[in-house]
């Protein structure tokens, strides 16, 4: 319990610091707090009360975070900054979701009533989310700047020792490839494959029961597109599976996994380009079938997605190897 309290305190401080400082600061605090506990208790085994006294004398989490963060010249300093980031994340996610939902719902209604031009639609897709993000960002920033200016006390509850957050299991296992992530990806791939392969069947089913000419035109074209695309999709899925098998086997963002990722992404990009160029996709907008623009967007999205995933692997490879995480059990000897 007493070690738990120390760990929770250190974790509470570390998680409010920039990521690159966390590991080092955690070790420093562990060293210093253990020394302070030892100085208080000597040979005696420290009790929970001893730990609480040491932590109280050492300072609240917000005070320690403020010492590690150099807040001079900042609009919002500690203890407000951590809460500011937390609130900002929530507000941005909520406002962005509302904006996207609003674009989708209102445009669908306008689209069906024929009051929406493509230009207007693109304008909404770009402008509404930007407006939501900028507005939320400005509002949250102003509110916290005012709180900081008047030094409104918002930390009393947060800083109580009893309120220290529990150390999540992932905190001690933050490197390497997450097994859960790989399994989730495999399950999603499987669901997609099943859905994609059976799509012509259930689309035909829907077609035979709907009797609508609008549905018929779209479903027929979708079936043709899916059947022509099947071979390309299967090739991309095989590449994805190869990458996931290596992820499970290697468990780390190491050189082998990096090379496999680069090779599969390169092959995948070529397949995506050939797919986009050879299979025509028809979509009806405002009564006219369009294909070229949609084809281009489709290929671009596929390539952006693949490159984004590769960028993530490259980043993790560089990050994990830079901080020497594969020998994390022991503190590193960083003689400078």
């Amino acid at each position: 319990m007493k070690n738990d309290l120390l760990e929770r305190y250190i974790y509470a401080v570390a998680k409010r610091l920039p990521k690159k400082q966390r590991e080092e600061v955690s070790r420093e605090l562990q060293e210093l707090l253990n020394d302070l506990v030892e100085a208080r208790c000597g040979e005696m085994t420290p009790t929970e009360k001893d730990i609480k006294v040491v932590l109280t004398e050492f300072g609240t989490v917000s005070e320690v975070v403020a010492k590690y963060r150099d807040d001079s010249g900042r609009l919002i300093g500690e203890p407000y900054y951590t809460t500011y980031l937390y609130v900002m994340k929530i507000v941005l996610i909520v406002s962005l979701s509302i904006a996207v939902a609003a674009v989708a719902i209102i445009s669908l209604i306008d689209g069906f009533s024929g009051e929406l031009s493509i230009l207007e639609l693109f304008g909404r897709i770009i402008a509404w989310p930007i407006e939501a993000v900028v507005g939320s960002f400005a509002t949250v920033t102003i509110v916290f700047a005012v709180l900081d200016y008047f030094k409104v006390n918002i930390t009393k509850e947060v800083d109580a020792i009893e309120m220290l957050p529990k150390v999540p299991k992932q905190a001690t296992k933050k490197f390497g490839i997450s097994k859960g992530e790989t399994i989730t990806e495999l399950v999603l791939t499987l669901v997609f494959v099943v859905g994609f392969m059976t799509a012509p069947l259930w689309l035909s089913q829907a077609l035979s029961t709907s009797g609508s000419s609008f549905m018929e035109a779209h479903a027929t074209r979708a079936i043709v597109w899916i059947e022509q695309s099947m071979m390309f999709v299967m090739m991309l899925i095989v590449l994805d599976l190869i990458q996931n098998i290596f992820a499970i086997k290697e468990k780390l963002y190491n050189k082998t996994y990096l090379i496999v990722s680069i090779v599969t992404t390169a092959i995948g990009t070529v397949i995506a380009v050939i797919w986009g160029m050879s299979v025509e996709m028809f979509i009806k907008i405002n009564g006219v079938f369009v294909s070229e623009g949609v084809q281009l967007i489709f290929i671009t999205l596929l390539i952006i997605g693949a490159l984004g995933q590769l960028a993530h692997v490259v980043y993790r490879y560089m990050h994990d190897n830079k901080v020497g995480v594969y020998n994390l059990n022991k503190p590193t000897n960083n003689n400078k």
Partner: peptide
């Protein structure tokens, strides 16, 4: 105590101090 390490980190950041972890002892120390 909570002022010292942040101060030393800042001085290290300015290039005035160097640090290293000693792991040979019973407890790792910076």
């Amino acid at each position: 105590a909570n002022t010292l390490y942040p101060l030393m980190r800042r001085l290290e950041g300015q290039g005035l101090l160097e640090s290293r972890w000693e792991t040979e002892e019973a407890k790792p120390r910076k």
